[in-house]
Simulated assay, not measured.
Amino acid sequence: MKLRTLLFFISIFAFAQVNASKVDTVETHSTAMNKTIKAVIITPDKYDKNKQYPVVYLLHGYSGNYADWPKAEAVRQAPDLYNMIIVCADGGFGSWYWDSPVDPSYKYETYISKELVQWVDERYSTIKSAKGRAIAGLSMGGHGALYLAIKHPDVFGATGSMSGGVDFRPFPNNWEIAKRLGKYAAYPERWEQNTVINMLHLIEPKTLKIIIDCGTEDFFYEVNQKLHEALLYRNIQHDYIVRPGAHNWPYWENAVKYQLLFFHNFFQQK
């Protein structure tokens, strides 16, 4: 009985040590959209204001919010494991992280890449350059992470997508995309110009570090495979992970472990 009690307390202590990162829900402000937007900031247990930390921004999927990613154990552990800060951002309902040409209340490209980054840099001790910032996401957020990193190489030096909607043209009636860009038939140029697979020409050689992950049973698997092939054709270096799995949280909770390690290695480069 005493041994069992001792083992219990040892396991509790070990759990506390692993999950010692500080998780805070904060309120940020978007001038572009004139509203307050919540985010979750996860810092190392031994956060030191005299040190500068790299930051990973995580984006949620369609119909999700800022509170999704902190549920993943790997996300809560990473700040202590890799000595980094994680920001779980909110991208609204079906924003796809664009500045919508249709709805002026959806300017999430400006919010994430400018306003939120500035807000974090002003309040936390961060590495204030692309060498110290990465951005990743799942599904809609996978598209958003690649989209924002490609368009803002001065802000993000590494990016990752998990089950990302990296080419949404095959899905013209899904996920409120038409509400943000206008209907495909009416505004084809918007759809062509704002889908990730058509933006690869914007990537300067040997600059952006990219990791892509998608399950073979995912409805986005085919478009991810085509993105991989397009990156190979253009000789753009990237990591591409494929394994059995669907479009669900068990897959993403596993995938994010590899993404965070990838970013840690990026931050360690001299």
Rank of each mutant, 00 (worst) to 15 (best):
I135Y: 00
I197M: 10
E217D: 13
S139L: 06
A246Q: 13
Q225Y: 12
V155H: 02
G215F: 03
V242E: 15
I203W: 01
I197C: 02
Y251A: 14
F168C: 07
P170N: 04
I236Y: 06
A130Y: 04
G182N: 11
N248C: 00
L261S: 11
E192M: 07
L146E: 08
R169S: 02
G132Q: 13
Y233I: 03
Q118F: 01
K179P: 02
Y251C: 05
A136K: 08
N254A: 08
S125T: 14
N235Y: 01
H238R: 08
E189Q: 13
E204Y: 02
E217N: 12
V196N: 06
G141K: 10
N265I: 03
Q193L: 05
Y221T: 08
V242Q: 15
Y258Q: 14
E122A: 14
V120S: 07
G142S: 14
N198S: 12
K206F: 01
L261V: 08
G182Y: 09
K226T: 08
R169A: 05
Y258F: 12
L208Y: 04
R169N: 10
G137W: 08
Q237W: 02
A255P: 06
D121I: 04
F156V: 12
I211G: 09
L231N: 05
Y184D: 13
A149K: 00
L261I: 06
W191Q: 02
L138T: 05
V155K: 08
P170F: 04
D213T: 11
L148W: 00
F156P: 11
R123C: 00
L146Y: 07
H264S: 15
A130K: 13
G182D: 09
A178C: 00
D239T: 15
R169D: 03
V166F: 01
L181G: 10
K226F: 00
A136I: 07
G245C: 11
P172A: 03
T159H: 06
H247F: 04
I210K: 04
R190Y: 09
N194Y: 08
R180S: 01
G164L: 03
P153L: 02
R234F: 00
F220E: 09
F263W: 06
A255T: 07
V196A: 11
F262N: 11
I211V: 14
A149H: 02
F263G: 11
I211E: 10
A186D: 15
N224M: 07
Q118D: 15
H238E: 07
K206S: 09
S139E: 10
P205G: 01
G132C: 10
S139V: 02
L148D: 06
I127K: 12
Y258I: 05
L200Y: 05
G182I: 03
Q193P: 00
S163R: 06
S161A: 13
D121Y: 03
D239I: 12
D167W: 02
D213K: 00
L181N: 04
I212G: 13
G160E: 08
M199S: 09
V223W: 03
T126Q: 08
L138S: 10
K151P: 06
A130N: 13
N194H: 10
A145Q: 09
K151H: 14
L208K: 07
E217H: 10
K131E: 13
A246G: 15
Q259A: 09
